Measured scan of single mutants.
Amino acid sequence: ETGKELVLALYDYQEKSPREVTMKKGDILTLLNSTNKDWWKVEVNDRQGFVPAAYVKKL
Rank of each mutant, 00 (worst) to 15 (best):
E1G: 14
E1A: 14
E1C: 15
E1H: 13
E1K: 12
E1Y: 03
T2K: 13
T2A: 14
T2M: 13
T2R: 12
T2W: 11
T2P: 12
G3Y: 13
G3C: 15
G3R: 12
G3N: 13
G3V: 14
G3L: 12
G3H: 14
G3E: 13
G3A: 13
G3K: 14
K4L: 13
K4Y: 12
K4S: 10
K4M: 11
K4C: 14
K4W: 11
E5W: 11
E5L: 11
E5T: 14
E5I: 15
E5K: 09
E5Q: 14
E5R: 13
E5D: 11
L6K: 11
L6S: 07
V7E: 00
V7H: 04
V7N: 00
V7K: 01
L8K: 08
L8V: 15
L8I: 15
L8H: 04
L8R: 09
L8C: 09
L8M: 14
A9I: 02
A9Q: 00
A9W: 02
A9E: 01
A9Y: 01
A9T: 03
L10F: 04
L10Y: 04
L10T: 05
L10K: 06
L10V: 07
L10M: 09
L10R: 05
L10C: 09
L10P: 00
L10A: 04
L10G: 02
L10W: 04
Y11N: 09
Y11V: 11
Y11F: 13
Y11M: 10
Y11T: 09
Y11C: 15
Y11H: 11
Y11D: 08
D12F: 04
D12H: 05
D12I: 02
D12M: 03
D12T: 05
D12L: 02
D12Y: 04
Y13T: 01
Y13S: 01
Y13F: 08
Y13H: 04
Y13V: 01
Y13A: 01
Y13I: 01
Y13E: 00
Q14M: 12
Q14R: 09
Q14F: 15
Q14V: 14
Q14K: 12
E15M: 11
E15D: 04
E15H: 08
E15Q: 12
E15V: 06
E15F: 05
K16C: 11
K16H: 08
K16W: 04
K16P: 04
K16A: 11
K16Y: 05
K16R: 14
K16V: 09
K16I: 07
K16E: 07
S17Y: 06
S17H: 11
S17R: 08
S17N: 13
S17L: 08
S17T: 12
S17Q: 08
S17I: 05
P18W: 10
P18V: 09
P18G: 09
P18C: 10
P18R: 09
P18H: 10
R19N: 14
R19G: 15
R19H: 11
R19M: 13
E20I: 04
E20F: 06
E20R: 04
E20Q: 10
E20W: 03
E20V: 05
E20M: 05
E20D: 05
V21R: 02
V21D: 00
V21Y: 03
V21W: 04
V21C: 09
V21F: 11
T22P: 06
T22R: 05
T22W: 04
T22G: 08
T22V: 03
M23G: 00
M23L: 09
M23W: 01
M23E: 00
K24F: 11
K24T: 08
K24M: 09
K25F: 05
K25E: 07
K25M: 08
K25D: 02
G26V: 00
G26C: 10
G26D: 05
G26M: 03
G26R: 02
G26W: 05
G26I: 01
D27T: 07
D27I: 04
D27A: 07
D27S: 07
D27E: 12
D27Q: 15
D27Y: 05
I28A: 03
I28M: 06
I28H: 05
I28L: 08
I28K: 06
I28T: 06
L29Y: 09
L29I: 08
L29T: 01
L29S: 02
L29R: 01
L29A: 08
L29E: 01
L29M: 14
L29Q: 01
L29V: 07
T30Q: 10
T30W: 13
T30V: 15
T30H: 11
T30S: 09
T30A: 11
T30K: 12
T30R: 13
L31G: 01
L31K: 01
L31Q: 00
L31V: 06
L31R: 01
L31C: 07
L31T: 01
L31M: 03
L31N: 01
L32T: 04
L32I: 14
L32M: 07
L32N: 02
L32W: 05
L32H: 05
L32V: 12
N33Y: 06
N33E: 14
N33P: 03
N33S: 13
S34D: 15
S34Q: 10
S34N: 09
S34T: 10
S34A: 12
S34K: 07
S34E: 14
T35D: 15
T35Q: 15
T35F: 09
T35I: 07
T35R: 09
T35C: 14
N36P: 05
N36S: 10
N36E: 11
K37A: 13
K37Y: 07
K37T: 11
K37G: 10
K37W: 07
D38N: 12
D38L: 14
D38Y: 15
D38G: 08
D38R: 13
W39V: 03
W39F: 07
W39I: 03
W39N: 02
W39E: 04
W39Y: 07
W39G: 00
W39C: 07
W40S: 03
W40N: 01
W40T: 03
W40H: 02
W40M: 03
W40I: 05
K41Y: 15
K41D: 04
K41N: 07
K41H: 12
K41G: 05
K41V: 14
V42D: 00
V42S: 00
V42R: 00
V42T: 01
V42K: 00
V42G: 00
E43P: 00
E43G: 08
E43I: 08
E43C: 12
E43W: 07
E43Q: 13
E43N: 06
V44K: 15
V44H: 15
V44Y: 14
V44Q: 15
V44P: 00
V44M: 15
V44F: 15
V44G: 15
V44S: 15
N45G: 15
N45M: 12
N45F: 11
N45Y: 13
N45L: 11
D46E: 12
D46G: 15
D46R: 09
D46T: 10
D46Y: 08
D46K: 11
D46N: 14
D46F: 09
D46V: 07
D46P: 06
R47I: 07
R47D: 03
R47F: 05
Q48R: 10
Q48N: 08
Q48W: 08
Q48H: 09
Q48Y: 07
Q48D: 07
Q48A: 12
Q48K: 10
G49V: 04
G49I: 05
G49A: 03
G49M: 05
G49K: 02
G49H: 02
F50T: 03
F50W: 15
V51S: 01
V51E: 00
V51F: 00
V51T: 02
V51W: 00
P52W: 03
P52L: 04
P52Q: 02
P52Y: 02
P52F: 03
P52H: 02
A53H: 03
A53K: 06
A53L: 02
A53W: 01
A53C: 06
A53D: 02
A53F: 02
A53N: 03
A54H: 12
A54Y: 09
A54Q: 11
A54V: 09
A54F: 08
A54K: 14
A54I: 10
Y55Q: 06
Y55T: 09
Y55E: 04
Y55H: 09
Y55F: 13
Y55L: 15
V56Q: 00
V56P: 02
V56M: 06
V56L: 15
V56I: 08
V56N: 00
K57W: 08
K57D: 08
K57Q: 14
K57S: 11
K57N: 06
K57H: 09
K57G: 08
K57L: 12
K58M: 11
K58R: 12
K58L: 14
L59S: 05
L59C: 14
L59G: 04
L59I: 14
L59T: 06
L59W: 08
